[in-house]
Amino acid sequence: MSKTMNLTLHVWRQKGGTDIGGFETYKAPEISEHMSFLEMLDVVNERLLADGKEPIAFDSDCREGICGMCGLVINGVPHGPNAATTTCQLHMRHFNDGDEITIEPWRAAAFPVLRDLVVDRGAFDRIIQAGGYVSVNAGSAPEANGLPVAKPDADRAMDAAACIGCGACVAACPNASAMLFVAAKAAHLGLLPQGQPERYERVKKMVAQMDAEGFGHCSNHYECMAACPKEISVDFIARLNRDLMRATVVERDHEEKSGGAG
């Protein structure tokens, strides 16, 4: 038969962005080892609701580790103790009866808390909007096999593209830096021939936006890579640094000339 456990949770509660917030302690009795961490919180929430209290707000959506919506700092580690695992895929069998669990939101100025454990990661969207794309309109694409891509490049691009944008890298970094996220996206597109025309402009714009959002700098602790549920490598950060140097030191600034057709 499956094991059950009694837990004590210390959870960050905060009513809204302007509220000060603080920790609340909750008992979580008779938790099945087969539950996911978020299902454990669901159970706690159902009980809070039954008692007429407001449930703990936390983000989650797909609950299969791919959408990147969930993310809690569990006992001091983003996404909890298991490597390569999102919060939604963490199961209670990795905890023991009597455990005390501290649950906190991602902490970064660029990720303001909206409520309880829910943060605003709009900064990541704005970084992508600044240049994290290939400029190609629907309908204008050439034949897909017209341009071969070396398999190692395609595979490495896929390694970088596996990023789910959850923000654990920022949460884990002692400086709250977003370098791993930015580096992964820049590498994904920069490794493919389709991404070459805009490669250096893209890097400049994304880095400028990253800085404007108020993330910290990278000081090579590599906590990001340890926390990343998709195990994205810091090698991509070296690549980003290289591309930015080339973009700002070697490449010419692009200047648009006026005047249209005809």
């Binding site: 700092v73 580690v77 501290t102 906190e104 970064a108 100025a109 906590e223």
Partner: peptide
């Protein structure tokens, strides 16, 4: 960049 810190933070690497 991180005005409010963690109550508990474990570094891994």
């Amino acid at each position: 960049a991180r005005p409010i810190g963690y109550r508990l933070k474990k570094n891994q690497t």
